[in-house]
Amino acid sequence: MRITVDGEPHDVPEGRTIAAVLIAAGRSSWRTTRNGGRPRGVFCGIGVCFDCLVVVNGVPDVRACQRVPSDGDAVRTQHGAELPG
């Protein structure tokens, strides 16, 4: 299965969350905060903290630690608050 992350293709095993894909690829952050522009990645890892948000196929505020991608998904970094589309 193949997805793109910020335009880069990634081959991912079935069942792996977006967060696991990104950490395995050596990334520790993929979001910036709304006020301070601070980098964030996984914190709680179980869907509680909403720190690991990414944009999936144009829809922001997707928890990377919870979302198991589908083939062809386009994932990208989320910058602060974003509108869908």
Binding site: R34, A81, E82, L83
Partner: peptide
């Protein structure tokens, strides 16, 4: 809602 960009 969640926070949205200013001006929405």
């Amino acid at each position: 809602t969640a926070a949205l960009p200013p001006g929405t």
